[in-house]
């Protein structure tokens, strides 16, 4: 069960043995957290919304689950290496006569600031919302991009 939980996530792609070590270290972190809190990889304290951040050579991808929130209810801004995400989740008012059996969905405002590992080219950043998942694509700035150096043969 535990093994499935810690390894069942989408496959990681690794380019070098160090990436693999890094991945192992992260999994060890999750394990230690599991033993100390009983919850695998769950945040103990945090700020809404929870985000997943991934990267590839060109961009950072920040994703958050925000069901029922339209793009224009969100305020996203980027400066240097920080991303700020604020907004409000409103639930439409239902009929007055309606009797509730369950009420689990929540409304409210939120604000979060995320610092990314490197500088971002703010002009090229873009965000999209599909099926309740917000995806923000943040291109690394030119200085922060990894550069391929070719060795000349004379």
């Amino acid at each position: 069960m535990l093994w499935r939980r810690t390894t069942g996530w989408p496959a990681w792609a690794w380019a070098s043995p160090f990436d693999e070590l890094d991945r192992m270290r992260r999994q060890m972190d999750i394990l230690t957290e599991t033993f100390s809190t009983g919850l695998p990889g769950e945040p103990i304290a945090g700020v809404f919304p929870l985000v997943n951040v991934t990267e590839d050579k060109e961009n950072y991808y920040v994703r958050a689950e925000l069901p029922g929130i339209k793009a224009d209810e969100l305020d996203i801004s980027v400066t240097g290496d920080t991303l700020s995400l604020t907004g409000e989740r409103r639930l439409p008012a239902e009929e007055e006569k309606a009797q509730y059996h369950r009420r689990e969905r929540e409304a409210g405002s939120f604000s979060r600031i995320i610092t990314l590992p490197s500088q971002i080219d703010a002009a090229k950043a873009n965000a999209s919302c599909t099926d309740g998942i917000l995806t923000i694509v943040l291109p690394r700035s030119e200085q922060a991009k990894p550069k391929q150096i070719t060795v000349k043969t004379s």
Binding site: P10, A13, R26, G41, N52, T54, E55, D56, Y60, I133
Partner: peptide, 17 residues
């Protein structure tokens, strides 16, 4: 379906899918 492309590497993971 996972929205992530196969060549993306995790930086921070707070929610599970």
């Amino acid at each position: 379906k996972s929205p992530e492309k196969s060549d993306e590497v995790d930086v921070l993971r707070e929610y599970r899918t």
